[in-house]
Design a protein around this nucleic acid. Structure first.
Length: 603
RNA sequence: CGGGGUGUAGCUUAGUCUGGUAGAGCGCCUGGUUUGGGACCAGGAGGUCGUAGGUUCGAAUCCUAUCGCCCCGACCA
């Protein structure tokens, strides 16, 4: 029976595998679906506690510490000042904020009154999903002069969101680690400077940890605000579509993406003739009208949708061949909107869905509408066919300019791959991505609500112009794995790796093998690497499989056979070939390899 | 919240249709043989079959309820 050599006097902070805790698994648990989730568990990085809740095991925690430290350094370089706010927020902060209605659904409540005592009332506290509602009152109280601006505060900590459907391990968890930053500026131009500084800091962060993340234009969603970018790691398992064009560099997420489908200089078509009602019994879909005997192409039909915005119905008109991108309706300015029900539609329009239209004079109660909003692509139709607001009838020769009472044209359709890029005209492409970071130029939404104002040099008071910025650090960890793995396991980028160097001692019972391991470990540590020594009394196959699985970038293998030849082996996890290093050159070669990797990782 | 699936040892699972002593592989423990890509032999520990009711002489298996988890959708800063 082999016994590992126990020697606690090894130099530096290197860890001995036999005395550390890296519970690797041959098989992945059945609840893991995607590669990165399986590897998180198989490589002993995390363990599941409950849905969307994970314990970081020592190896996983080391990765998190690497990422948070690099993140901290880059955000500070970009002007950030670190602080730490409570995880537990008094519910009043949220009730006073601008998005209580929209955000309360995703917040965990923390009752201090005990079981059942609060009944249906609001909780005393909520667990923070983000911190605008905490930082803004703080800044209001502490900063009142233009002399103290700009300021950009950030923190790195745990966030809580009651995700309806947690998935894919750390990818969408109920509790996760996030870097969040909040900038305060005197005016719009300065706010944009802060925004751009953060964008640069993000780019530096992702580059440094070895993640290929791209900035794409994004929708602002419930955050509100004037513009924003998402940082996406391209991956098949991502939950966002990125629309992009290599030729122009255009990139936007699906909710925001637009195309050059409608030329800017398009002239509206002249009417083809008087509108004409015709019977279409039982025809209630675009597809049915497309078929014989009607044979109206989908892109010659108008699609009329009814929504309820802040209690009032409004219409959205699209080409029959287009899909609505619901997020784009956010531009209309309603606080809350939803699709109307059949019961709500008929009294207003005079017909059921399937026979609706926006032609002047055919709507039963046009005065009830908050507006008729049309996607600009309907101008391509010129003259088309739409519902007559009378069940079983449609209208043809409907001219966009003459017959439709459009309140406002806009971009409401979902872009399809292959459509011309708005910048270059080249075909747009689509790919999936994981959202790892998001930056928003917020404007004054929060500062006005909380009264965060400053006095300028003319003694005038103004609301501060804010920006907010987030990086999902735990999600980034998984994205890095999703991006860097092969059939055998994880392939960590140098700066994200829990250890940079793994010294694999195949014959730990040999004192000279342990001696050499110490020597190599010391050399690697002096060069600035974190070292793990596999001193376990396992068979070589087990050690190699585990080494590949946990994915340490540089592996140094020491075996009895090699020692007799006077060599040890050096192998990069990302490469196949193995270099035999003479013992005489040991320390120099190890130091050189570490230096090389560091230089490469620094870009 | 809607649809689908699933729950058996630490992990992966067979058995469920057709009720009759709960099985295997991995891992773990002991001994031996091995020793450069997840070894082999022998022995061993480990399961109130998610939970609660019901049907039955008898339930992992059938019925009801409930809980957890996974997938699709809705939703999602």
């Amino acid at each position: 029976m082999l016994r590992p050599v126990r020697d606690v006097s090894l130099a530096g902070c290197m860890k001995l595998w036999s005395q550390y805790f890296i519970p690797t698994l041959k098989e992945s648990p059945s609840d893991a679906e995607i590669a990165s989730h399986k590897l998180l568990i198989r490589a002993g990085l995390v363990r599941r506690l409950g849905g969307g809740l994970y314990t970081f095991l020592p190896l996983g925690l080391r990765v998190m510490q690497k990422l948070t430290q690099i993140c901290r350094e880059e955000i500070e370089r970009g002007g950030g000042i670190e602080l730490a706010m409570p995880f537990l927020h008094p519910v009043e902060n949220w009730q006073q904020g601008p998005r209580w209605t929209a955000a309360r659904e995703i917040m965990f409540r923390a009752d201090s009154a005990g079981d059942g005592k609060r009944g249906g009332r609001e909780p005393d506290y909520v667990l923070g999903p983000t911190h605008e509602e905490v930082i803004t009152p703080l800044v209001k109280a502490e900063i009142t002069s233009y002399r103290d601006l700009p300021k950009n505060f950030f923190q790195i900590g745990t966030k809580f969101r009651n995700e309806i459907r947690p998935r894919y391990g750390l990818m969408r968890a109920k509790e996760f680690v996030m870097m969040d930053a909040y900038s305060f500026d005197v005016d719009d131009d300065r706010a944009i400077q802060s925004y751009l500084a953060m964008k640069a800091a993000y780019e530096a962060f992702f580059k440094r940890i070895g993640a290929h993340a791209i900035a794409v234009e994004a929708d602002t969603g419930v955050m509100g605000g004037s513009f924003s970018h998402e940082f996406m790691v391209p991956a098949e398992v991502g939950d966002d579509d990125v629309i992009y064009c290599d030729a122009s560099g255009y990139a936007a997420n699906r909710e925001k993406a637009t195309s050059g489908l409608v030329p800017a200089d398009l002239t509206d078509a002249a009417p083809e003739g008087a509108t004409e009602k015709f019977a279409t019994p039982g025809i209630v879909t675009i597809a049915a009208l497309e078929a014989a005997p009607y044979a109206v192409a989908a892109d010659q039909q108008f699609k009329t949708l009814v929504f309820i915005g802040d209690g009032k119905p409004f219409l959205v008109v699209l080409r029959g061949s287009d899909e609505l991108e619901e997020a784009k309706l956010g531009a209309l300015g309603f606080t809350l909107f939803r699709q109307a029900t059949v019961e709500e539609i008929e009294p207003v329009m005079g017909a059921k869905p399937g026979s609706l239209g926006a032609v002047r004079g055919t709507i039963k109660s046009p005065e009830a509408l908050a507006g008729i909003f049309a996607d600009q692509a309907i101008r391509l139709i010129g003259n088309g066919t739409t519902g007559a607001n009378q069940d079983g009838f449609h209208l043809r020769h409907v001219n966009v300019a003459r017959d439709l009472a459009i309140t406002k044209f806009g971009d409401f359709r979902r872009v399809r791959p292959g459509e011309p890029c708005p910048k270059s005209g080249q075909p747009l492409q689509v790919r999936r991505g994981i959202e790892v970071g998001h930056i928003f130029k917020l404007g004054t939404k929060y500062s006005e609500k909380f009264g965060a104002v400053y006095t300028d040099d003319q003694k005038q008071s103004h609301p501060m112009v804010m920006g907010c910025y987030g990086i999902g650090v735990s999600r980034t960890m998984q994205a890095v794995i999703e991006q860097g793995h092969d059939a055998d396991g994880i392939v960590w980028p140098w700066n994200a790796a829990p250890f940079q160097v793994l010294i694999c001692v195949l014959d730990p019972q040999l004192p000279e093998a342990i001696e050499l391991a110490k020597k190599l470990a010391t050399a690697a540590e002096r060069a600035g690497a974190d070292v793990l020594v596999d001193d376990r009394a396992e068979r070589p196959g087990v050690k190699f499989k585990d080494a590949d699985l946990i994915g340490i970038p540089l592996r140094l293998t020491i075996g009895g056979k090699g020692l007799k030849e006077g060599i040890f082996e050096l192998k990069w996890r990302a490469q196949k070939d193995v270099a035999k290093i003479p013992l005489a050159e040991a320390e120099g070669r190890v130091a050189a390899a570490v230096a090389e990797a560091q230089a490469k990782a620094a870009g």
